[in-house]
Write a protein that binds this DNA or RNA. Sequence first.
DNA 1: TGACTTTACGGTTATCGTAAAGATG
DNA 2: CATCTTTACGATAACCGTAAAGTCA
Lengths: 310, 310
Amino acid sequence: MDLRLLRCFVAVADAGSVTAAAQELYVSQPTLSRQLHRLEREIGLVLFRPLDGRLVITSAGRELLPRARTLLAGAAAVRAFAREIAAGAIGAVHVAAPTAILHDVLAPLIAAAPPNLPPLTVRPMDTEKLYDAVDGDADLAVGAHAPPAHLSARVLARLPVRAYVPANHGLAINGSVTLTELIDHDLLLPDRQHHIRQVLDVATAEAGLVYRTAGGFESAPVALANAAAGRGVAVASGDPAFGLVPLPIITAQGPMMEPLFAAWRVDHHAPSTLAGLAGELTAYLIDRHGPWVAPETRHSVPALRTRSLH
Amino acid sequence: MDLRLLRCFVAVADAGSVTAAAQELYVSQPTLSRQLHRLEREIGLVLFRPLDGRLVITSAGRELLPRARTLLAGAAAVRAFAREIAAGAIGAVHVAAPTAILHDVLAPLIAAAPPNLPPLTVRPMDTEKLYDAVDGDADLAVGAHAPPAHLSARVLARLPVRAYVPANHGLAINGSVTLTELIDHDLLLPDRQHHIRQVLDVATAEAGLVYRTAGGFESAPVALANAAAGRGVAVASGDPAFGLVPLPIITAQGPMMEPLFAAWRVDHHAPSTLAGLAGELTAYLIDRHGPWVAPETRHSVPALRTRSLH
DNA sequence: TGACTTTACGGTTATCGTAAAGATG
DNA sequence: CATCTTTACGATAACCGTAAAGTCA
């Protein structure tokens, strides 16, 4: 079922003669006649019949004609679609991210549904395999670790790392906590591979401080749950839960922050779409957490804004 | 946009490697690799990318894949449809017929909608050009004249030729009229080219009789209208109108009858469908006018059945 | 080394256009 | 005889398969 032959069929049916159709298709008339016969032999139908020195379409040809047109239109649509893809269009963006980011950032963004957002398909991905996902079936990877250099990447935002305490906790009064104050408490932390742990390690090392922890938890929400149970102060960067109060952690370098990255392959077919999505993510995070989380700026610690955190 | 290349694309995407897909497609592996690159060059997209010695589909390929499948399915559907046509299927039957037959036979048949009737498209056609219509865009021609010998043909029925008189006319009492009785009256007839005129000419010539007429009318309904106005006795074969009473005309050979033919090209792709439609027409006419109109049988004149004529 | 893809090359097939022949009014 | 279709034929281009080379765990 060669589409070219189908095109010949439609052209002859429209033009009313092989000669006329051959001119429109820029082929010689015998060539077109042969292609018609080739099609007839291929599909086992007589499509035209000579009458008065002309060709007239047969009943079988009349039956086939609209289907042939439809198929050719479908082929043209696929061609046009391919051109759109080549021009950078994209139907749906597949995003890979750790569960926490998926839960705290991507799902809320999808729920907010900004107007320019392409359809997103998000998939949870272990931190270790995160940036390899763009070599597979992910268009974009969003994570807290710095992506490898061979990927195109953007810093989406610098999210505050915070201490989470019950509302009646002594630290809750100030609205923030210094690193020095923090290490006097038992810290409830996620596992070592979580990026938040590395940020904390670097900050305490720079300050010459040491913190106490009863070992890592499997995930940030579990650490928060233990904090709510009064077992210590949780350190994390996600949304508060269990009625806990989040306190920005102040270091000598300013508020402790955790960067959020988006990364994609340099040879992705729609880099501008992905960069645009990264911009949407940044805009969303700024809208949600305030302008001071913007990747390129450094502001002072804002007053704690509990309302906008929900 | 060669469908074969699209098939290669889908096969490789499904098989996961060129080598595996090549085996399924019964082509050599380098050939398939080349076809993939040909497709990529043709549509301007990179569909696969090497990773760890394998090929993995790119985001562009992932976007294109479902469209390619759809198009290939459409091509398969067209191929299947062509096979159905070749096997004698037909979507709609185009029927050409004179206006009178279209009105008296085909339209009522469509309205009756017997279960096995294919969709009909009926088109009025002058009597002279009727049987040429099957060389054009008509599948079937239905008419009263004998079709040319080069067409496949069936006699659908032999419809009674009748005299139409007002209910208070003297002839109306008997329920039928002999040819001898008939020629005593002024006859209102359609034009010379109407087949009914030729039937009457033959019958009177055989009987050695001569009839009087005030000239032909453009169509049978106009002749009937004049009969209703009391200007004479109309002779026709269609449905009664204007409150006229139809009287079978009895000749020495029995009731005067007019055959109804269906004809189609001998090389039509679905002769069985057309023959079946002819059978439906015969069945409908028998159901409507009685078994004595059946083409192969000769019965005596039935009692006038005014009820079933409406 | 093994599995896979790509490149190179010889040979076959398909397809094209020109030119001539057949068919029809 | 003018128009259209079909057939014939030589030449070009496309395509395939085998074989070799390249690439990556």
